[in-house]
């Protein structure tokens, strides 16, 4: 039997092209000279020691840095060829195309249904399509089987792992081309982490995923490509050391610093 939700067309996957991207907080340049292509329909992991600009780079991709006030992003960031920092781009529209999941599960204090419907309602999706969209999003986030029949329940009644999958469903509901994940499993227990990783593996055929992680095993397990970032001293901004196929990065990195980090000699 084919579920009704499967009749919804899948959105296309987005590709990012970053050219000479730098980020400054006030006068301090935190990150500079990043050239990076993020392939569509794949998982790209950003790894590196704390303070190497992974999250900063991630937040450039949906312009969440704009919200911090004194952040300047320079260089060029294109999503499927469109410059996302062009003057006529509204960050609100960009964020429909590029969703984000945060480190700690942060469901809204409302029902499961209302959490998932929040994004689509914001963007004027009609009521008649909402049930379908909510179901589809929850299915894609692998939460549907656990919450069907309980959609009116308050989101806070879910476990931490379920809450995080709810947040993934919520982000999927705007049908984004890209999903940014900032250490999505770092606040979760091993079993919930496993479930999130399974969800990511399922999702990547539909959505391009960029994931920041501290956990190198996780990066090795779930990503297709890995980008290693580093900040060598506080006087100099962080930079992208290298990027490549995850297997190559983990078995045969071309940079000595990558090798040192991968093999656990620092970080």
């Amino acid at each position: 039997m084919v579920s009704t939700a499967e009749t919804l067309a899948r959105p296309k996957c987005g590709a990012f092209d970053l050219t000479d991207v730098s980020v400054a907080y006030g006068d301090e340049v935190a990150l500079s000279g990043v050239d990076l292509r993020i392939e569509p329909a794949s998982v790209t992991a950003l790894i590196g020691p704390s303070g190497c600009g992974k999250s900063t780079l991630l937040r450039c991709l949906n312009r969440m840095n704009d919200e911090l006030g004194n952040v300047t992003v320079s260089g060029k960031i294109q999503l499927d060829g469109d410059d996302i920092y062009a003057r006529d781009v509204d960050p609100v529209e960009l964020r429909m195309r590029v969703g984000q999941v945060f480190q700690k599960p942060n469901p809204f204090p409302m029902s499961i249904y209302d959490n998932v419907a929040y994004g689509p309602r914001t963007h004027g999706v009609p009521k008649s399509e909402m049930d379908l969209l909510v179901e589809d999003s929850l299915r894609r986030a692998a939460l549907w089987d656990e919450v069907r029949g309980h959609l009116k329940k308050h989101a806070f009644e879910l476990s931490g792992g379920q809450q995080q999958r709810l947040c993934i469903a919520r982000a999927l509901a705007t049908r984004p081309e890209v999903m940014l994940m900032d250490e999505p499993a770092s606040a979760l227990d091993p079993i919930s982490t496993q479930q999130i990783e399974d969800t990511i593996a399922e999702l990547k055929s539909d959505v391009t995923i960029v994931i920041v992680t501290h956990n190198m095993q996780q990066a090795a397990r779930i990503s297709d490509r890995t980008a290693f970032m580093l900040r060598e001293s506080m006087e100099r901004p962080a930079f992208l050391v290298e990027v490549g196929d995850t297997r190559t990065i983990f078995t045969n990195p071309s940079d000595k610093r990558t090798e040192a980090y991968i093999t656990g000699r620092f970080g």
Partner: peptide, 10 residues
């Protein structure tokens, strides 16, 4: 919560 909402394009 604010971040989550903004990131959803609100």
């Amino acid at each position: 919560l604010r971040q989550a909402s903004l990131a959803l394009g609100a």
